[in-house]
Computed example of a mutant assay.
Amino acid sequence: MSGWLTEAVPRGRVAAFRTLVYLFVAADLVVFTPWVRARVDVPGELYHPLLIGRLLPLPTPTPALVGLLFWALLVLALLAATGRAPRLLGWTVFALYFEWMVVAMSYGKVDHDRVGLLVALAALPTAGRARHGDATRTEAGGWALRVTQIAVICTYFLAAWAKFRFGGLDWATGSVLARAIIRRGTELADLVAQVPHLLIVAQFGILAFELLSPVVFVLPERWRLATVGFFYSFHLVTVATITISFAPHLAAMTSFLPLEKVRPVVWARRLLARGGQPAVPDDAAAPPTALTGPEPAVGPATP
C-alpha cells in the first residue's frame, strides 16, 4: 500500500501540476470567486463559519481583511507558480486559500468541487523542488499527486453516498435534472429534456458513474487515461446543459495526466526558432547535378 501511495513520478510532472494549480488559484480569485469580496458587505450576523472556522477560531471577515487576503493570495499564487520556494510559498498559499474558502462557504452554500484542489494545495509543498522537463523520478512528488487523485475520486464516490443518504433511490427516479434544467438549463438541455425518460436514465447513469469511479485506480495506464477522459467529457456535458463547471475539481483531476509531456514554453521556443529562420529558395536546397560531356580544357585557348 505504501508503495502505491508513493509511486514515483517524473519531477517534470510535479512541476507542471504545481504551475497549473497555482495559476488556477490566481484565476479563481478573479474569474470564478470574485463574489467573495462582495459578500463581506452583508451584516456580520449573517456570517456562520464552517466548523473548522469555529474551531480555530477564524475572525469574522471585514472588507479590509478580505481585500488584503485577495491581493496577498493573488501575488503569492503567481510567485508560487514559478516553482520558487516551493515549501514557503506553498504553505502560505494553502493557508490563505483555505481562509478564502472558509469565507466563501460560510454564508449558507458549500461547494464540494473544492476538495481535490485544497488537498493538492496542502500536498504540493511536501513534494520539494521540481523543474519542468526533469525526467528524474520522485516518491515525494508521487505522494502529492496520489493523495490529490484520492481526493478527486472521493468527491465522486461521496457525492453518490450523499445522494443515497438524503434522497435514497428517489434521487434517481425523481426530477433532479428536470429542476436543474428549469433553473439554469441551456438550449441543448431543453432538447435533451424532450426525449422521454432520458433524464431518469441519466440520473441512474450518474449514480453508477460516481459509485464505480474508484475503479480508475486498478485500471492499466491506457484505460486509466481513457477513463479520466470520460470524467472530463462528463463535466463538459454538464457545462453544456446545466452550466455547472466544477472548474477547481477539473484542475485537481489533472493529477492523473502525464503533464510532463505538455511543455508550452518549449513549444513556443521551437515556433519562434522556426519563424526566425530565413527562407531557403527551392533551387538552393536541390543537390548539384552532375556535369555531362567532356570537362572544359584548362589553359590558354588556341585559335
Score class of each variant (00 low, 15 high):
A85S: 12
P34W: 02
T82P: 01
D41H: 12
V40W: 03
W91T: 13
V93I: 09
F94P: 01
A77P: 03
E45N: 07
G116F: 02
E45P: 00
A122L: 14
A104V: 01
A85W: 15
P57D: 05
L76M: 15
A140H: 12
G90Y: 06
A85H: 14
P59E: 00
L46P: 01
L124Q: 02
T126R: 15
T60Q: 09
L145P: 04
A120C: 10
L68K: 14
L88H: 10
T82V: 04
L78K: 14
L74D: 05
P49G: 08
A80T: 07
V103M: 03
L50D: 01
G141E: 06
A64E: 12
L74P: 00
P59R: 07
E45Y: 07
Y47E: 00
A135Q: 15
L65Y: 05
L124C: 03
R87Q: 09
P63M: 03
A122H: 04
L76Y: 03
P63D: 00
L124A: 00
V147L: 14
G44L: 02
R54Y: 00
F32G: 01
V31S: 12
V119C: 08
D134E: 15
L145C: 07
G83C: 05
E45D: 13
H48M: 11
M105G: 04
V93M: 09
A85L: 15
A104L: 14
R114C: 08
E99Y: 15
A122Y: 09
P63Y: 01
V110F: 13
W100Q: 08
A72I: 06
A104D: 09
P61R: 06
A81M: 09
Y47V: 03
V40K: 01
R129N: 01
L58D: 07
E99N: 13
V115F: 14
V66W: 02
L117I: 05
V66E: 08
W35V: 10
E139F: 07
L69E: 11
R87S: 07
V119L: 10
P61F: 03
W71S: 12
R84K: 10
A144S: 14
L89D: 00
P61A: 06
G133W: 03
H132S: 11
A120Y: 05
G83T: 04
G142N: 07
R84L: 10
L51T: 10
G108E: 01
T136V: 09
L65Q: 06
K109M: 09
V36G: 03
T138C: 15
R37I: 10
L73I: 03
H48A: 14
A135E: 15
G116Y: 02
T126I: 10
G141S: 10
A130E: 08
V119W: 09
L56A: 15
G108A: 05
D134K: 15
L117P: 03
A122E: 06
L68T: 11
A127I: 06
T136M: 08
T136S: 15
F70A: 13
P57L: 07
T62W: 05
L65A: 13
A72V: 11
L96F: 03
W71P: 00
D111Q: 12
P63V: 02
L74E: 04
P125R: 15
L68M: 13
M105L: 13
R129T: 10
G142W: 08
H48Y: 08
R131N: 06
K109G: 00
W100F: 11
A64L: 13
P43C: 01
P34V: 04
A135V: 10
H132T: 13
G53V: 01
A127L: 08
P61D: 00
